[in-house]
C-alpha cells in the first residue's frame, strides 16, 4: 500500500511539534537562562516587566498601546482597530505556547516599540509580568 504524501507530512509534523510547542513557564525559564549568560545575578522581575510594557521607548507606541495596561483583557490594534485577544496566559491559554509565534511577535513588536530587538532579560521580565497578570 502506498502512503499518501500528506499523511507522511502529518506524521513528520507530529514528530516535530512536541519540541516546538511549549508552556509560558518554559519560555520564561529559557529567556532567564539566556539573560544569566550576560548577567549571572539576573532574576526575572514582574515589576520591571510591567514598567517596560507600559513605557514608550522613544517611539510612538508602547506594548500597552495595543495590548492595554491590563493584559488579561482584550486589546485593540493601535493602527487598524482590530481586536487582539488577551496576552496574559491566565486569560488566553494559547499565548506563549509556540516557539515560532513567540519569536515572530517579539521580533516584530520590539522593533515597532523599541526600534531594536529586546534583550533576553527584557523578554523574561515581560513574561514574568504577563504570567502574574489575571
Amino acid at each position: 500500500m502506498r502512503i499518501p504524501p500528506f499523511v507522511l507530512a502529518a506524521f513528520a509534523l507530529a514528530a516535530v511539534l512536541p519540541t516546538v510547542a511549549a508552556t509560558p513557564a518554559q519560555f520564561l525559564d529559557a529567556f532567564a537562562r539566556e539573560a544569566r549568560q550576560a548577567d549571572t545575578a539576573f532574576a526575572a522581575s514582574a515589576a520591571r516587566g510591567r514598567a517596560f510594557f507600559s513605557a514608550s521607548h522613544g517611539g510612538e507606541w508602547s506594548c500597552a498601546s495595543c495590548h492595554t495596561e491590563k493584559p488579561g483583557t482584550p486589546g485593540r490594534h493601535a493602527a487598524t482597530g482590530k481586536a487582539i485577544s488577551p496576552l496574559a496566559p491566565a486569560a488566553n491559554p494559547d499565548r506563549f505556547t509556540s516557539a515560532g509565534k513567540v519569536e515572530k511577535w517579539f521580533r516584530r513588536n520590539c522593533n515597532d516599540v523599541a526600534g531594536r530587538a529586546c534583550t533576553a532579560g527584557e523578554k523574561a521580565d515581560v513574561l514574568a509580568w504577563l504570567l502574574a497578570a489575571k
Binding site: 493602527a79 515572530k104 521580533r107 516584530r108 513588536n109 515597532d112
Partner: peptide, 12 residues
C-alpha cells in the same frame, strides 16, 4: 513587510 505601513510585519 519589515516596514509594513508603519509596523514590522516581517515573515520567515
Amino acid at each position: 513587510l519589515d516596514r509594513h505601513f508603519g509596523a514590522d510585519a516581517s515573515l520567515e
